[in-house]
Amino acid sequence: MTGLLQAVVVDAATPAVLGVYREMLGFEFMQRALLAGLLVGILAPLVGSFLVHRRMAFIGDTLAHVAFAGVAAGLFARSALGYSQEFLPFLTALVVAALAAVLIQAMADYADVYNDVSMAIVLSGGFAIGTVLVSLSGGIAVSINQYLFGGVTRLSWTDVYVLAGLTVLVVGIVVASYKQLLYSTIDERAARVARMDVDRTNYLLVVLAALVIVGAMQVLGVILVAAMLVVPVAAAGQIAPTFRSSILIAIVIAQLSTVSGITFSYTNDLAASGSMVLVAIGLYVIAVIFGRRFRIGQ
């Protein structure tokens, strides 16, 4: 049976799959796309693991929509005011998203809880500012599309290098702050009693989330970027035996989602960001069924 399966599936499929990858990797833009996908697949679930288990999954969406205002401001400045820096929209998005993250955390500290109403107001307010800025300068609709829906095939090598730098930075910070992040995620009050610096850690986490959102936005788009912070983490939570392994499993699931999503979109001429997120959701469903079937964690 195994031999037959190997003959039918592996032997037949492997050369075909390898052929697709050989062809894909022949194009530089696809090399960049896959590299960017792999980097986002590390960044998003790494930070998402701490957000999801604090019940802050929604903050990714909020920051993405606010970052859109930053992108629009950058594009507006570039087109209307005559600045020519290619990175202006990226930088403005980074600054605006980081400021919004700090604002959201300050509101949460003030109210003692992450308030979904204020989060929704920040989300729609950010997006509204973005659309107004876009309408103020009629000629930037095409580049806005890339930010809204992702443009993994339109990335430059510089974009990929920036994403790689961001990945090294975020991974370094998470590794260095792992104990603080974990303790305040699991039991914030006990972490405060243990004199861990919970306030600093909370601000650090939301700013990391803003960095990741803006970094991944060019790959996945404003509307779908938050999915990569949430879905692989939710899937890993179903099957992971430990917290540490849940982070690694979430990263593996995200890698499978980005690489197979990009490949699928290439072979079938479909939207890459949508394909990546659909694969991730498919893997989540499989993880739920698998987790229940084998009663993992029971």
Binding site: H53, K179, Q180, L182, Y183, T185, I186, D187, R189, A190, A191, A194, R195, M196, A236, G237, A240, P241, T242, F243, R244, S245, S246, G297
Partner: peptide
Amino acid sequence: GQGVASNDRSVPITVEEIVRLGRFP
């Protein structure tokens, strides 16, 4: 704290990982 005995969270964390938190300081 309150509610440690209730089962309202689905964080994938083991008993040993919880106990290790006590050594973090």
